[in-house]
Design a protein around this nucleic acid. Sequence first.
DNA 1: TTGAAAGCGCTAACAC
DNA 2: GTGTTAGCGCTTTCAA
Lengths: 339, 339
Amino acid sequence: MAISLKDVAEHAGVSVKTVSNVVNGYRHVTPATRQRVQQVIDELGYRPNLTARHLRKGRTGIIALALPELGNPYFAELADAVINYAAGLDLIVLLDHTYGRRDQEVLFAQGFRARLIDGLILSPIELENEDLLARGHDAPLVLLGEREYEAPYDHIAIDNVAAARTATRHLLDLGRRRIAFIGARHGRSRQPAHLRLRGWRETVTAAGAAADDALVAGTDGYTRRDGAQAMARLLDSGTAPDAVFCYNDLIAIGAMRTLTERGLRVPEDVAVVGFDDIEEGRYCTAALTTIAPHKQAIARAAVDALLARLEGGAEGAVESRRVRPGFALVPRESTLGRP
Amino acid sequence: MAISLKDVAEHAGVSVKTVSNVVNGYRHVTPATRQRVQQVIDELGYRPNLTARHLRKGRTGIIALALPELGNPYFAELADAVINYAAGLDLIVLLDHTYGRRDQEVLFAQGFRARLIDGLILSPIELENEDLLARGHDAPLVLLGEREYEAPYDHIAIDNVAAARTATRHLLDLGRRRIAFIGARHGRSRQPAHLRLRGWRETVTAAGAAADDALVAGTDGYTRRDGAQAMARLLDSGTAPDAVFCYNDLIAIGAMRTLTERGLRVPEDVAVVGFDDIEEGRYCTAALTTIAPHKQAIARAAVDALLARLEGGAEGAVESRRVRPGFALVPRESTLGRP
DNA sequence: TTGAAAGCGCTAACAC
DNA sequence: GTGTTAGCGCTTTCAA
């Protein structure tokens, strides 16, 4: 049996309350008492039982972060940022995977792990508005990422349309006229990619460049393999783009792989832009030009928003926030070529 | 206030015990009662308070997985595997970072988060044997990775020497004679890399190939940047290797980047082998030949070992296990060239 | 400043 | 098959 407050109290000849006061750094304790208690704590190797504390306080200091998957470096890097920032605030982060599956996302949104966690940060892919509205009054929820909802929850996301415009304009500025877009999801109307797709379409259209559907390649998911396959389809269909803007870096990396295999040069024949600024992109043979969302800022905003809800009390108390962290275009070899 | 067992009991006109029985799927409950209780549960939206359950049971069902960092895809992929396998066993995984820093590793080994977690899986980098021996009788601990300790803890790791031999032999078989090793850590004697270094040294020596120290390049860490810098130093020093075996895939990717920048071809001029089989390696311009540790098997072994301790009771009850999951050489373009 | 006692929500004995 | 009760270890009134 482990050592409890009571054990310490008995050994020190004081009450549990006093020990509790010492453990929690309460002010009004005689230095003498404090020292004696502290000594017994050290001797016995007492560790407070967090579970009991949680039960009593009604809060656990644990928040969940539900992401599609860690296999995508963007999410791994983001998770890293959230965990770090939260740790500085004495919050523990419980990481969960949804695999971008609606049933999983609904599970978390509905309050899976209720009362183990104080709140949830969720990055949805397939979740629908109705799923969110059907949510009971559980722990606070903060939404992350490019899906848009009409529900009263805080939402942290960069301006995806603006970022897509920036990326596309960069390609136009380099003289490219047949810019493809890879990553629209097959046959889904309100898909995650629609904001970036819109930014692309608006910009190419405004510039009088090609904007036909033949330049838009769908994918099943968001992996390197999806990118490689989509690029292959694009080339096989005879579309012959001189640039591609990809939904994310992984897709871009897959696309570059296909281009290389087909004997096409990046960027001379086809320029490539990704999205996410994952570390990996910097080490590609043609280092990847990309949109860099400010991950630290995203992490900070998400945790802060959750914390505000936690402190703020009731759901409706504060109006739902819409935070737009910054982003930047990072031009590299995949569009500029080797210096 | 949230709905508790008691609330449900009152509404259903039964005792808390009965509700508890229903919630826990206890057998001996009349179907009629069960149905009535279940209905009230649904109506009221009752969710069991996990914290209270944990306190009562003395177990939380939460295990911690302390890894250096998620930024290394190998660890991200491993974490993914552990989380999934654990979920199937109704275990929640709490992910923590040590950044390969000894103080952080000691913290976890000493029982940080004691009594929040039932046990710990730790992948140490800098941790020393003495740190482990100084450990109190806290939650069970399972060690992961290539560091070796003389302490009574379960240890899961592939046979690193054998794996390094396989990788090196592969290069020898391709006719390479000046095989460099990148990733020995600067000026550390009992460094993590020493097993792989040994495998390399034994194999090149046995083959009568070059094994001089000029072919061994140290790094500060295990990132792409470390690999790029080490490769540059190797080339600048006039060593002129015709192959490199890298401590891990990230280092290999960084090394390939430098080779490309210097106008050297992979594998024609320099063949490259990595270690870890991260997804990223498959999409490099010269797809990376690598050693693939069986991550699923590692994850399974680690969780199983921890679970065995959890069930088995006392620390000394079971002898400490040494599990060696399998590995495989995956030859790709970075040694074989394009088909 | 410190002590005594109640109770957070749940499960495990034990009674009925 | 179901109800009653005690208590997991902690914090928090309320007294002293």
